[in-house]
Amino acid sequence: MIHLENAVFAWPNDDAVIRMNDFSVGRGEKVFLKGRSGSGKTTLLSLISGIQTLQSGFLEVRGEELKKMPPHKRDVFRGDHVGYIFQQFNLIPWLSIEDNILSPLLFSKIKRKREKGNHRERVIELLEDLSLQIDIRKPARNLSIGQQQRVAVARALMGNPELIIADEPTSALDEDRRKDFMDLLFGECEKRSSTLLVVSHDSLLASQFERIEDLNDLNGVEHV
C-alpha cells in the first residue's frame, strides 16, 4: 500500500526532516508508528497523503508514484483513497452530523460511487457500528469530545477508502477513553480490511497492533 525508498524531504531553507531508506506498509496491514513530537511524523503523513512531495527518492501509494502526479491529481487521489483522522478531529461545527460524515463524498467521485444508494442509511449504519446514538440532523458543534471522535472515525470510513491515516487521534481524549477509541478504530479497519496507519507518541495505544515501528529508527535524520 505504501512504499518508500531513499526518501528525502526538507522544508524550504531547512535541513532534511525525512530521510527514510526503506519503509513499506502492505495492503490491509495495521501499523503503529511511534514518534516523539518533532520527529517528522506530521511531515511523513503529509508526504504519504500527497500534500508534500519528496525532494528525492521514491514514494508509492497504492501502486502509484505520487511525485509523478500533477498536484490536483494528488488531491483527488487523496480524496479518493485516503480517510484521515485529525488530532483535533476537525469536524465542521456548523454542518449537521450527517453532512460531516458525508463530507468525503463531496470531493470524491470514487467514494460517491462506493456509497451508492441511500446515504442517510449508510450514515446510520456507520454510527450503529460505532455504537453512537445521536440525532444526525443536529449540528456537530453540540457533540461531546467522545462523540466527536466517533463521528470523525465515521467520516474517515465513509466511502470505504483503502488507507486510513490517523495523526495522534487520541490526544484530545482522557486516558480511559484512549484505549476504547483505539479498539474501535482497529476493529472497524479490520472489518473493512483497510490499511491503517496510526502515528502517535503514546506507545500505550499500540497494544493490539501486529506491527509497531519507531519513527526514530526509520528516519535517518537525527532530531533533537
Binding site: H72, D75, R78, G79, D80, S108
Partner: peptide
C-alpha cells in the same frame, strides 16, 4: 483554517 485543512484532506484542491 481548520475547515480548509479538512477539505484538503478530503481531496479538495487549493483551487477549489
Amino acid at each position: 483554517r481548520r475547515e480548509m485543512a479538512l477539505f484538503r484532506s478530503l481531496g479538495a484542491t487549493p483551487g477549489r
